[in-house]
Design a protein around this nucleic acid. Structure first.
Length: 432
RNA sequence: UCCUCGGUAGCUCAAUCGGCAGAGCGGGUGGCUGUUAACCACUAGGUUCGGGGUUCGAAUCCCUGCCGGGGAGCCA
């Protein structure tokens, strides 16, 4: 039966006797006054032991405590400006649950490799806790927004027989006597559920076997992918924009203490309001040409530095539409006005965080889709069910994918995406 | 996969021209009645990533392998 309280609620218990269950984050000793810095997952609290008697029984327990030892502490909550956070616990009793062995992560600096090897322990530090709390808030905001807009969550399979965008980036596994692949996107399945339910989204892990080694890439990452029957490209853009505005707003509303722990400058986040600037690929190309900093030839996909150059021109996420169809996926609908261009959009985050959203209107004509599958040298056989969607009540439809970890990294202003997920899967990094 | 930088105590890093391998943190012991990554004193702690080579002498120079950081491409 729960008889303890959590540090995040401490202000409600001033002058009351409470029990806190947590871990030793740090301790300090000044003779007859001793301090334990407690953490319990919801916050950090300074707890204090005081006695005139040098043989006071709690001093003995204090001396045995090591960093990360688990303990149950009883005491009275005091308002005290000398304590970080403004509240302090006057300890009346301590029950140690376990005395921790010498803890590898000390209070001083560590290198990335060491921290990654100890990711399971690194997660306990204040900043990592703050990031994970923000990540959870972002997931909730995304789901609340999509649910609020009437979109139905439909879960796609993780094990699939076919690839969304080619076969070079797939993890292969065996499926009894057949080959199977880990999903790199839930989109194709979302298109099927969209034709059943009208407005749907998927939210789950996806896998790319690309040997990417950058601060923006993970091998395993989470995507939220709406798919909307009868929606055109503009509808998808509007939805993505409203979603991002909502997510930033909710994070600022509910996770300010965590953003402060991360020392996130929130001025740029306060500027994330509708509408976002919208440019075409051609306009983006002109910006790059004028900047003189890009060598990318016309007609090729924009590189990471190109995206940064463009995002620097704006304070908000920027929507880039109408890329050349030749560099985009087979399922993207060509523009009626200019069939060389695809009805697609990418949303580039400010502050150099790269592509947050990628989406498009989908090809809904059977013959055209069939031709696209053939020219992309994909197997019509594995896409038979997908082609069926164009045979039975096909409609124009649109959708996009939002990268969760990039969104977390951007909102938290992380230097590397690896901190945006509890256990990142990266090139050469499968453990822990 | 390519470019680039690195690997020295549990951790973060020093070590001048190739000449005794050292500091802070963490650990241990002791001290201190308000600390804020507390402080002060003492103390233990080393296959200098592995293998080969040059040299009177290698952490240092050369070759090679392994591991890691940063960047590129690809993408969300």
């Amino acid at each position: 039966m729960k008889n303890w309280i959590y540090i995040e609620d401490i202000s409600q218990y001033v002058e009351q006797e409470v029990i806190i269950k947590g871990w030793v984050y740090n301790k300090r000793d000044s003779g007859r006054v001793k301090f334990i810095i407690l953490r319990d997952g919801t916050g950090i609290l300074q707890a204090m032991i005081w006695s005139k008697d040098p043989d006071f029984h709690l001093f003995k327990i204090f001396n045995e405590l090591t960093q990360e030892s688990s303990l149950v502490v009883k005491g009275k909550v005091k308002k005290d400006d000398r304590a970080p956070g403004g509240f302090e616990l006057e300890i009346s009793d301590i029950n140690t649950v376990q005395i921790a062995e010498e803890y590898p992560i000390s209070k001083k600096d560590h290198g990335v490799a060491f921290l990654m090897e100890n990711r399971h322990l690194w997660l306990r530090s204040t900043k990592q806790v703050a990031i994970l709390r923000i990540r959870a808030a972002i997931i909730k905001a995304i789901r609340d927004f999509m649910d609020g807009q009437g979109f139905i969550l439909t879960d796609p399979p993780i094990l699939t027989a076919n690839a969304a965008e080619g076969t070079t980036t797939l993890f292969e596994t065996s499926y009894f006597d057949e080959k199977a692949y880990l999903s790199q996107s839930g989109q194709l399945y979302a298109e099927a559920t969209a034709l059943a339910l009208g407005k749907v989204y998927t939210f789950g892990p996806t896998f790319r076997a690309e040997k990417s080694k950058t601060r923006r890439h993970l091998i395993e990452f989470w995507m939220m992918e709406p798919e909307w029957a009868y929606a055109e490209l503009d509808d998808a853009i509007q939805l993505a924009q409203d979603l991002l505005v909502y997510v930033v707003e909710k994070t600022l509303e509910t996770r300010m203490p965590e953003l402060e722990i991360l020392e996130r400058d929130i001025k740029p986040l306060n500027k994330i309001k509708s509408p976002f600037p919208r440019i075409t690929y051609d306009e983006a190309f002109n910006i790059l040409k004028k900047s003189g900093k890009s060598q990318t030839p016309y007609g090729e996909d924009l590189g990471a530095t190109d995206e940064t150059i463009i995002s620097e021109q704006f304070e908000k996420p920027v929507v880039i539409t109408h890329y050349p169809a030749s560099i985009k996926s087979f399922y993207m609908q060509p523009d009626k006005e200019d069939p060389e261009k695809a009805l697609c959009m990418d949303i580039i985050a400010p502050e150099g965080y790269g592509e947050l959203v990628g989406g498009s209107q989908r090809v809904h004509d059977y013959e055209l889709l069939m031709r696209r599958i053939e020219t992309h040298k994909l197997s019509p056989e594995v896409f038979k069910w997908y082609l069926d969607l164009r045979r039975f009540g096909s409609v124009p439809h649109s959708g996009f994918g939002l990268g969760l970890e990039r969104t977390v990294a951007w909102i938290c202003h992380l230097t590397h995406i690896r901190e945006s997920i509890p256990f990142p899967r990266m090139l050469y990094n499968l453990y822990p």
